[in-house]
Design a protein around this nucleic acid. Structure first.
Lengths: 145, 145
DNA sequence: TATTGTTATACTCTATAACTATA
DNA sequence: TATAGTTATAGAGTATAACAATA
């Protein structure tokens, strides 16, 4: 199972490098990702989607506005709320990332037959179920780094 | 390949919860892990092992001393350096974590035959190689959260 | 009264740069 | 001069609590 951890760590690390080159961080990208899929959102909705406090969203959106990835607009019907919307730059970035994502997914299974990939996917599904079961059952799982 | 990411995210999240319950963080545990395997270290050595600045190690060790997981001792031959050593509490914690780790590894593949596990391990090895190749080749890999 | 977002404050991880004590 | 660790400063993510404006 150390393979899994190793893949995890490498992936994470590489991801941060690439985002950094684009002027983004993991958290901010996560927020952009939600906007990309859900469309314009209230900050409150973003907080729920990211499982983070509203205060935290304020900071992330501030940073994304400053770097031009999103814009704030007043909510049409609720004057307490603000809508967060992808800018042209933000939308283009998300498009590019989605495309890259496909490439990477293909690259990861390079040299493996479709059957093998399906098989591994099924195996991982079992692991995922086991993991979920363990988490909900007790709330244990250890260290590692 | 989304299975992989999902496993990754769940794992990470659960790990943080458990460490938090013990009064630890991922970074601090990583440092303890190095001490557990390498024995007493100079802070400089820890900085290299964790791939982090010496200044950062100072902060981590400060926190671990304050919470009683490690102690600082003068280096026997180099009076510039300090040795960081696991306390009894720290050592006991690492032992417990190592044991739990085995349990979790078993739990992850519960219901899978030994042959299936071997097969999946081999598949993941290929993925790992592909990932390494992609990283060194260019330095690309995308987002995702 | 309840909700939305903000200011205020604080903790953790991380980095660079400058400084002290030793080699 | 070079090395080990520290102080000083800064930026990112995160959290709680108190507060304003609006429902």
């Amino acid at each position: 199972m150390d393979r899994l951890l190793e893949v995890t760590v490498l992936f994470q690390h590489d991801m941060e490098s690439n985002l950094g080159a684009r002027g983004l961080t993991v958290s901010r990208t996560h927020l952009l990702w939600v906007l990309h899929h859900a469309g314009p959102c209230k900050q409150h909705e973003l907080a729920e989607a990211l499982d983070v406090t509203p205060r935290n969203v304020t900071g992330l959106v501030d940073a994304l506005v400053a770097t031009g990835f999103v814009v704030r607009e007043p909510h049409p019907t609720d004057r307490r709320a603000t809508l967060v919307i992808l800018s042209d730059k933000g939308a283009a970035t998300m498009e590019a990332m989605a495309a890259e994502r496909e490439q990477v997914a293909d690259g990861l299974v390079a040299g493996m037959s479709a059957a093998t990939v399906d098989r591994m996917t099924g195996d991982l599904e079992v692991v995922l179920l086991n993991l979920r079961t363990m988490i909900s059952e007790a709330g244990r799982t250890p260290e590692s780094p």
